[in-house]
């Protein structure tokens, strides 16, 4: 690019520097649209939510909120009797109940989905006729919008007309109709079941991608050495797909921790299934406690960040894509 006749003496170092600079510059321009989109779609709303959580904004006066510091998280006043009472999200039992519900739901659902997804992926990884068709078919639950599948399952789980009760009654598994989504004892199981049904294909797909990266010759070598298939799975397959699996689990955990639609549609608005997202939406909109709901949203963000950070640290997940 540079003309050698104008500055022959510095041509060598100049070209080197400018090449590096050019790289940085073009990288910047390639990244800029994505950065702008990220700032507009993620950083700015997040910043606004955190800001709102430090004010007393209501939904009917969005721009008139006053700064009140951390009052939505924790505040206290001393009564005339000298007793101090604490208020705010951090001491709100309804909030901690929702956190517990969410964490419990996430742990169980991600665990089940990972195990089942891996099993499905192993089956799909085998060579058999019609494999492409089965691979496509298994993705259907994932492709149906959550609202639609939640409503569909709500009818299937309906205590009076539902096909599940009818099936179980005829098979003699249950003796009387169960109100799956209404009863506190079963509603969480109902949610878990539908979520597992819906998301297992997603996990299976990610696991399958990992499985297909494993070179076939390793398996051949194991077979020639006469290694037992179970041992092959635990010594070869699992360690080799571990990076892919860890990333898949992060995706699912992020998703599960902010679950809203399935619970909102499938179960009554009871404390047995209310999650962090459900309770913060309720405060934001239904109760016109916009700032309080923002504080809960901020905590939701913090809790998810904490979980993911702990997971990456404990699992030593390699997110850079470079070989160790």
């Amino acid at each position: 690019m540079t003309s050698p006749s104008t500055s022959p003496a510095r041509a060598g170092t100049g070209a080197e520097l400018s090449l590096q600079q050019q790289r940085v510059r073009s990288a910047f321009w390639f990244l800029a649209p994505m950065m702008v989109a990220l700032i507009a779609a993620a950083a700015w709303p997040l910043f606004r939510t955190i800001y709102f959580s430090l004010t007393n904004t209501t939904l009917s006066s969005l721009y008139e909120g006053e700064w009140i510091g951390l009052g939505n998280y924790l505040n206290w006043r001393t009564l005339s009797s000298g007793k101090t009472i604490y208020r705010g999200t951090l001491v709100d039992p309804a909030w901690w109940n929702a956190v517990w519900n969410t964490v419990r739901f996430s742990f169980v659902s991600v665990l089940l989905e990972t195990v089942l997804g891996l099993l499905v992926a192993l089956v799909l990884n085998a060579e058999f006729r019609g494999r492409a068709l089965v691979r496509a078919a298994i993705l259907i639950p994932w492709a149906i919008p959550t609202i639609v599948s939640a409503k569909m399952w709500a009818w299937m789980l309906n205590d009076q007309f539902g096909i599940i009760n009818d099936l179980f009654l005829n098979l003699g598994i249950i003796s009387e109709k169960i109100a799956w989504t209404a009863s506190d004892a079963t509603s969480m199981y109902a949610v878990l079941m539908v979520d597992v049904w819906k998301t297992t294909p997603f996990m299976a797909l990610l696991c399958l991608a990992g499985l297909q990266m494993i070179p076939r010759d390793i398996y051949e070598a194991a077979r020639i050495d006469g290694v037992h298939p179970v041992k092959v799975f635990f010594r070869i397959t699992l360690p080799l797909i571990r990076p892919a699996l860890m990333v898949a689990v992060i995706f699912r955990a992020l998703d599960a921790l902010r679950i809203f639609d399935l619970i909102y549609v499938l179960t009554p608005n009871s404390s047995a299934t209310k999650t962090m997202s459900v309770i913060s939406r309720e405060n934001l909109i239904d109760f016109d406690k916009f700032a309080y709901g923002s504080a809960q949203s901020t905590l939701l963000f913090a809790i998810i960040a904490l979980f993911v950070a702990a997971y990456i640290w404990l699992g030593k997940v390699n997110l850079t894509g470079e070989n160790r």
Partner: peptide, 8 residues
């Protein structure tokens, strides 16, 4: 009343 009345 059916137990499911709690979701009706």
């Amino acid at each position: 009343s059916p137990p499911g009345v709690l979701s009706y």
